[in-house]
Write a protein that binds this DNA or RNA. Structure first.
Lengths: 214, 214
DNA sequence: CCAAAAGTGTTAGTGATACACCCATGT
DNA sequence: ACATGGGTGTATCACTAACACTTTTGG
């Protein structure tokens, strides 16, 4: 029971970073330049430093990658199968991250692995067990959006109800009824109706909304 | 990025083991005989061995403690705050475990730490961050029992509808309506009505049910 | 015939779903 | 005046919640 006699393992974090871009649900992936899984795509993440909590670790990695601070994070779970990483025993803790793509400027990481948005319906081959982690993250996102107000994390400061509905549809992967959607949003009482409107073409201008800050 | 240059940490598993005993929701705790947190209570668990997955690790520990095989397990999440364990950096993965108390024979573990059932509403002082882990586990259990068929894991092979309702009430911490409960169970189509009945006193005998195997 | 737990249906309310037309604007 | 996306209400259905009496047994 003396921990000093016990094995130690590597600890990493991985982030399943979603955004909605032009009506499509996107996930952030990096292309690996070195083995293992050279050339394959992987979730952004990295090793946990001794002086940081798990969530702090993934936040740091994400800020390096996206230059966005205070990213919304929720834990998905731990993945620690014996052979999930050929380099040795690595236990990773995965996080769901939501981001407004307007704020992101994608950076090259320390290994110059380029981060890019990928359509969730058209994923490349993935390294490690990241396909499983993504599937779990997507399930969690879909659950959360129907039960909490996480959509806020993806929207810009001001948006129209059509924008918001498009985000919901991208995440859920299905069309929603316009009137029912707007009714529910009204009932939820999380939106603040602004006096401003936005005009995009030769149409009726759309009312802008923002989220009520808790 | 070379993992060989990275720090390694201890990896443990902890189990939030629930059962229902005489109408009360109980959790399995061990009393710690040695520091840190000597004399305090803690979740059963232990270090992850190099050749086992996380779930295999917690299953092994639980089998040692309870002599029950094939315990129902679902991951709660990872807990890895820097200072959660004074002995060093320890990242634990917590699991929700459900058990039919009839099958359990509580054993002394290797350190002769005695495992005992504790009423969920009357918990002693807990070691580490185990109070937080228990709170998360209870939340998950309550969510699961309302959305899936996990109650099966706690019930014996044959049981009455009143038994089953008592289990639900113990887990949810509230009384349920008898007629509505029975109606919902009928609609869920997971119960098999047996021809047998059970008689306990000078009352009408109660019909026995079992769960339909998948 | 009494005590005690088993068993059984109906009603009202609430939330979800389906559905079609008018509005405001720029060109 | 037309094309385009913005905006609105009602009716039905399904699910949830509230509620009280009869049945079967042993003593």
């Amino acid at each position: 029971m003396d921990p000093l006699k016990r094995e130690k393992y590597f600890a990493t974090t991985d982030a399943v970073v979603f955004t909605v871009l032009s009506g499509e649900l996107k996930i952030l992936l990096i292309k690996r330049k070195y083995p293992p899984f050279q050339g394959k795509f992987a979730l952004p993440g990295g090793f946990v430093l001794p002086n940081e909590n798990l969530e702090e670790g993934v936040a740091r990695e994400l800020e390096e990658e996206t230059s966005v601070k205070n990213i919304f994070l929720e834990q998905i779970g731990a993945y620690g199968d014996v052979k999930r990483d050929p380099r040795g025993r690595v236990i990773t803790t995965a996080f769901l991250a939501l981001i407004n793509s307007d704020k992101v400027k994608l950076h090259a990481s320390t290994d110059a692995e380029l981060a890019k948005w990928h359509d969730i319906n058209d994923l490349p081959e993935l390294a490690f067990d990241h396909d499983k982690i993504i599937a779990d993250g997507l399930k969690k996102l879909r659950h959360d959006i129907e039960n909490t107000a996480v959509a806020f994390q993806i929207m810009p400061e001001k948006f129209t109800l059509t924008d918001l509905q498009t985000t919901y549809e991208a995440i859920l992967g299905e069309k929603l009824d316009k009137r029912n959607f707007r009714k529910k949003m009204r009932e939820d009482k999380v939106l603040k109706e602004l006096s401003e409107t936005r005009m995009l073409g030769a149409h009726r201008p759309a009312r802008l909304f923002s989220f009520k800050k808790k």
